[in-house]
Structures are given as structure tokens and as C-alpha cells.
Design a binder for these strands. Sequence first.
DNA 1: GCCTTGTGGTACTGACCGGTAACACTACAT
DNA 2: ATGTAGTGTTACCGGTCAGTACCACAAGGC
Lengths: 216, 216
Amino acid sequence: MQKILTGNTRVKGENMRAASLPLSTHNNERIPPRDRLLAVAADLFYRQGIRAVGVEAIAEAAGTNKMTLYRHFPSKDELVAECLRQVAREGVERWQRYEAAHPGDPRAQIHAWLTEMAGIVTDGNHRGCALANAAIELPDRTHPARRVVEEYKLAQRKHLAQLCRDAGLHEPELLADELYLLLEGARVTAQSIGNVGLGARLLRMAEAMIAAHQAP
Amino acid sequence: MQKILTGNTRVKGENMRAASLPLSTHNNERIPPRDRLLAVAADLFYRQGIRAVGVEAIAEAAGTNKMTLYRHFPSKDELVAECLRQVAREGVERWQRYEAAHPGDPRAQIHAWLTEMAGIVTDGNHRGCALANAAIELPDRTHPARRVVEEYKLAQRKHLAQLCRDAGLHEPELLADELYLLLEGARVTAQSIGNVGLGARLLRMAEAMIAAHQAP
DNA sequence: GCCTTGTGGTACTGACCGGTAACACTACAT
DNA sequence: ATGTAGTGTTACCGGTCAGTACCACAAGGC
């Protein structure tokens, strides 16, 4: 089996990831180890895959060790679930930002969402939705992480449908599904095919869909 | 880490999977071991994930052993790639069937594709596109399986775009992308949210999209 | 002073992994 | 009969994995 370089060739006690990662684990001073572990784990899980990342690598990347990790999380599975819970939290915060930026204007909120997502998809480091990826990587439906994924995805679709309804668009649920599936598909496909021009295409397609649901 | 039951509690020399799997590995008599290995591996990889399935489990499920596996495949990575190549082959065969069933009628071919895919997505055992899942599970872009995925996905989109063009639809590439992304999104989302009514919804959405590209 | 709480460090367990070596066996072709 | 090609079987290698035991240390409250 092909192994991925884990980069744990760092000198003992030193942190080599300071310059290479957006995650600033080099200023460990005041961030409690639990938060460092969560942030680092979420990042590693997303970029390398959940099963591909060992707990030792997570602890090391967070500037701590395995024992501290297991003092804060009962198991790797629970750590995974907690990471996804954080990702889901960021997702609902995004919607709250749209609402704050465009209060009472659901159309503008949808548009803001589409625009931001188009940008995210176009990013070269994008690897799809962390929650959807987790569902694919963890086929066991009893895994604690699966509940997080299912709840978040349902809430996401429900919120989008409500926005479509509030915007007075026809067949709001159907439109919400169209938009949601289109975007989800774009996030998956971007990994296999690439994402040149995908962002702009995505916006055009979404706008056409919304327009189709605007006329009676 | 949560372990998935691998079901290798079978009695030595006997095959307990005969009744539990669509894959008929119980009549090993005339099927060469290489084909059995490929079929079983593709099935296990799809249902449990690539990283979650060991070569020993594959060999055992195929009614043979690890040595025979390594006599036919240089490594697990190459076995994975070969499995995906087979899946891709089945994908192009599907398109050939549509063409044979509706020669010279691209619209009907597209419709046949949508109908069949809607049925597949609605299936409760559906776990998304095996190739897309592999791309998610294998972040290393140099993995031999990644090339298979990228080539297939590109060919798939190209073929669909050509059909849209032949059908005289407006902006065929854009429509092809819309349909393709919608379907890919549905395949991913079906795992997290479920697939109740998704098939019928999918057909309605796709038809609406095509209709929108029909008028000038 | 002291004691508690959280942390770092090391070493370990038992299991599994991908991959290989060596040998015995069967079927078939000549 | 003999040789060859493919297969089955067992045992092994080095490495990694999740998870734990044990001890040392440092900070803060009292």
C-alpha cells in the first residue's frame, strides 16, 4: 500500500509546520491543547483522509502527545465526530453571516452562499465537503461521525429550502434540491476533473435555475 | 478505531458468502482466480472502503489466498486501479447499450441514462460512484487509481456534452455539466440524507433542465 | 510549605497491515 | 513418464495502528 509522507521527520521538540501550514500551531503558548488537537485533526483528516491519519501524527502536529489527546477524547472515532461537529458549526455560522449581511433578503443570502461556495470549489486545495467525505470514508452507519453528517446535511437542505420559500420562488423544495445537489456534485467532481472555470459555470447554472423558478 | 466485522469466521475451505452476496463466489469451479479476485475486491472496496479492506480479506472472500493475489497483481494499489478500470469499462458499456437501444436518438439516450441512474441512486445499497469515492479516499494524486478516475470522468462528461450537442440543445456543454453535477451530487447526498423520493425528484429536475435548454 | 490538576515523555501491548519465501500439490501437454 | 505452469498453504518480515501504564514536571490555589 502506498504510503503518504507524514512529515514527522521534524526535530524532537521543534515544530516544522510553522511555515507550511495555514494552521498556526507554532504559537502554542495560549491555545489549550484540546483546541489545538481539534484544529490540527480536522485539517489532517480533511487533507489526507480520516483512515490515513494516525492519532500519533495528530498529537505530534498539534505540538503535544498521544496521552494528552486521549485525556480529552475517549477514542479516535469520537475525535473524528468532534471535528465534524466543528465543521458543521462553521457551516451554520456561514449562514448566520449571510443573514446578518442581508437581513430580510433571502435572495441575497442565497446569492452570497452561491458566490462563496463557487469560490471555495474553485480553490485548488479544495477536497470536497469534509462531512460528505467522512460519510464516504466511514461506511459503518453506526459510527458516531455519521450522525453528525446526516443531521448537518438535513439542516442545510432545510434551511436552503426555507430561504427559497421566503424568496417567493416557485417549488422551493425542488429548487433547493437542485441548487444543493448541483453544488455537492461540483465539490466532488472538482477533485476528479479539476476546477478550471468551474466557479463561473456554477454561478451561471445556479442563476439559470433560480430564474427558471421565478416565472410562474 | 472502530473495526468493521470482516466476516472471515468462515470454516476453512468453505465459502459462507454464497447466500449473502450477489457475487456468486460459491461456484468457483470455472471462473479463473484473477476474475474472482477482481470481482470480490471491487465489491468489498465499494461497500467497505478501499483502505478498510485488507488483501487477506479479499483473497479469502474470493476463495483463494494472498499469494495467488500477488501473482496476478503487483500490489494492492494496482489491484485497486484495475478494479476501477473495470468499473469504468462497465460505465462505457452502459452508454453503448443506450446507443444500441436508441440509435441516432441522443435525447432518448440521455433519458435512458437519467432513468437508469435515478434507479441506481434510489437503491438502498447505493454508496455513490465508486470512482468518485476512490478519489476521495486516495488523496495522493500520483496513485495509479487516480488516473483511471480522472480519465473516466472526463470521458463521461465529454460524451454527455456530445449527446446534448447532437440533440440540438442550446449551450450543450453547460447543460451537460448541469446534468452531470446534479447526478453526482445526488449520488453523494443519497448517502448522508437518504434517498426517499430522490429518484423521481431527480428525473423531474433533469427534465426541467433539459426543457430550459430547448427553447432558444 | 503542600496538594491537586493538567501536561509531557517514554515505553509498551496486541492486533493488523502489505508483501515475501519456501514448499507441496494438481492438471495438462508433450 | 516428464516437465511446466498455476495454485494452495503456512510461516514469516518489518512496519503501523489504536490505546494504555507509569512516571516526571510545572503551575496554581490554599
